[in-house]
Design a protein around this nucleic acid. Sequence first.
DNA 1: GCAAAAGTGTTGGTTGTACACCCATGG
DNA 2: CCATGGGTGTACAACCAACACTTTTGC
Lengths: 231, 231
Amino acid sequence: MPSDLFSSSVIDAVSIDCLIFGFRGSGLDILLIKHGEGISKGKWALPGGWIQYNEDVDEAAGRLLKSLTGVSNIYLEQLRAFGDVSRYPEKRVITIAYYALVNTDHYALSAGFTASDVQWFNVHEVPKLPYDHNRILDFGLRQLKHKVRHEPIGFNLLPKKFTLHQIQQLYEAILEMQLDKPNFRRKLLNMNLLVPCHEKQKDVSHRAASLYRFDKKIYDQLTEKGLSFEL
Amino acid sequence: MPSDLFSSSVIDAVSIDCLIFGFRGSGLDILLIKHGEGISKGKWALPGGWIQYNEDVDEAAGRLLKSLTGVSNIYLEQLRAFGDVSRYPEKRVITIAYYALVNTDHYALSAGFTASDVQWFNVHEVPKLPYDHNRILDFGLRQLKHKVRHEPIGFNLLPKKFTLHQIQQLYEAILEMQLDKPNFRRKLLNMNLLVPCHEKQKDVSHRAASLYRFDKKIYDQLTEKGLSFEL
DNA sequence: GCAAAAGTGTTGGTTGTACACCCATGG
DNA sequence: CCATGGGTGTACAACCAACACTTTTGC
């Protein structure tokens, strides 16, 4: 959390923290910043900060994320508020946590504002974070496991064109469990959510797989007609 | 929302609002209070108020609910924070919404603190509420529909001993749809969640139904062993 | 007997799960 | 020819939806 650079124009009792999950083909990553100032200077933490009086909380989350990390224009969803008395040492601060999923390759990281560095960390290799940030991360991971089974959010983490195997690896990374290949393929294809690109992988040392893409419009149409995305 | 009676000891930019759902055998109810003071004096609104500096947000929700309505000792779960700039007219206030399910019969309502009245309203017959309270209610109803399908929270709304028909009516009220009696019975009984009381209804003008009770311990055991509660 | 709700049975279709198996490609 | 992943087939069990039917009780 940055210091009160703008203390006159921000709400001082409420902060924002963002969980940005990324995927690089194997494990799940989380985006952290290194604090360049303030009481946690030098420590890695979740990107976050203060809300201004004239911006919606949802807007504040997007603005802070962009200024701290360079990541912009993504759909941030609210996780929940954390408001224990002792969660922040200096004074009473309630934080509202947001989370999002992005494809690691699509964003150039650039530390800014009060952040001196930005970096992806494997979610199982994060350092000890200040305040209750580790707790927030744990909560977010649990929420993510639940959400990914019921809504097609996972596709944000993949390249535009992807193979069925890549989706499966993503789901295995998030859910932390093995899935049966034939059954997973069928389940996904039978939803008619994926559009075949009529292209194959290249430069792989095994049989080339077909590429698919996810189409949000088709998903919206199907859900309106009463299809539910499950697993 | 009460006025700043304790303005020195409360966080002035954050409030709490509670959605308390009740059930009386037919429709779903929501608990509202009539404001006895402040800018919304005389209006019906969600019970809520300010958080003190020395209490956790979760605690504040329980305290406020009790002092305003007399309803205490229930499990309040956080819904989410609402933080649009214009949601509150006087000044910038972010609110954190909580929700809970209670059996209407188990609680004696008594208006207190800044509330001049308390009353149950059918969720489809609520008056126009101040601020964004109608939006919060809508959000809570949607959340409730989702939650009740995946976790056995609904049993809070029933008497200790209940018939299968009563559960079905409850589910039909929350989900706003008709359910097939034989299939609903079987589904519930096959989960082995319900303990038969070996008792029958009395004084009913039709065949008396068997009474069951819900046992949280059994539920916890079963979920540990990997059972999932669905529908 | 009638109404109202309790409770049981049956049937056919869908879905999930656990596999065995063959195919294509690079090294 | 082997390792790696792509991709298909099958067979059994479990589950679900729809609906017909019998039972008990008060009036």
